[in-house]
């Protein structure tokens, strides 16, 4: 009987692994159900089944809890502001030595802003990948404009900075190219849908 109590105690601790809402709603029921099983079945079988069940359902419940989260728009705005500030500082300071650091901060903060905005968006019906063509086009254009502005403001660049600038420019051109290709594919698929309908 004390073995059952220990098992139940360990299971109550394991219940804490579930997301807060789930364990607050069903915690007592989960423990009660395990107690019922321990009363009617061999303990080893109940323990084995419950361990497998925990391993499978804890990640699932967390995933469900994350999918049901309330979107927030504050985090992408903060990262976006950091990225913009880095670009402004690079333009204003104009020192080639500062350029690399500012570019790195702008790229990382921009990427984090995009990722945060993607996570915070409300869940909608899945749309075709080609729907995002304009984002690539706009992103590529923004990269090129920022690059031209920075290089114009700073004038002479050291060798390392030129390499970074060339890679950034190439990335901008590739983004624009990908945007154009996806845009054409998107328009073609819309025209095709219109024909079928």
């Amino acid at each position: 009987m004390s073995g059952h109590r220990r098992t139940l105690g360990a299971y109550r601790l394991a219940i804490r692994l579930y997301p807060k809402r789930f364990r607050e709603e069903y915690g007592p029921d989960l423990a009660g159900l395990l107690a019922d099983q321990l009363r009617d079945e061999p303990a080893w079988r109940v323990v084995a089944r419950s361990a497998v069940d925990l391993a499978l359902t804890v990640p699932t419940r967390h995933l469900e809890a994350r999918m049901a989260r309330t979107p927030t728009s504050l985090v992408p705005v903060i990262f976006g502001a950091v990225a913009l500030s880095a670009v402004v500082v690079a333009i204003v300071v104009g020192h080639p030595g500062v350029l690399l650091g500012c570019l790195a901060v702008a790229v990382v903060a921009g990427a984090l802003a995009l990722a945060a905005a993607h996570r915070a968006r409300p869940l909608t019906e899945p749309r075709p990948t080609t729907h995002n063509w304009w984002k690539l086009l706009a992103g590529g254009a923004a990269v090129l404009v920022a690059l031209i502005a920075i290089t114009t403001a700073t004038g002479e660049l050291p060798e390392g900075a030129w390499f970074v600038a060339m890679v950034t420019g190439l990335a901008g051109v590739m983004l624009i190219g990908a945007g154009i290709v996806l845009g054409i594919a998107h328009l073609a698929s819309r025209a095709n849908r219109g024909t079928v309908a």
């Binding site: 579930y18 789930f22 709603e25 069903y26 029921d29 989960l30 159900l33 395990l34 099983q37 089944r49 419950s50 497998v52 069940d53 925990l54 499978l56 359902t57 804890v58 699932t60 419940r61 469900e64």
Partner: peptide, 13 residues
Amino acid sequence: VRMGPGTLYGTLD
């Protein structure tokens, strides 16, 4: 089919 507690209450939820 023998459901564990987490599977059962997750599905009921």
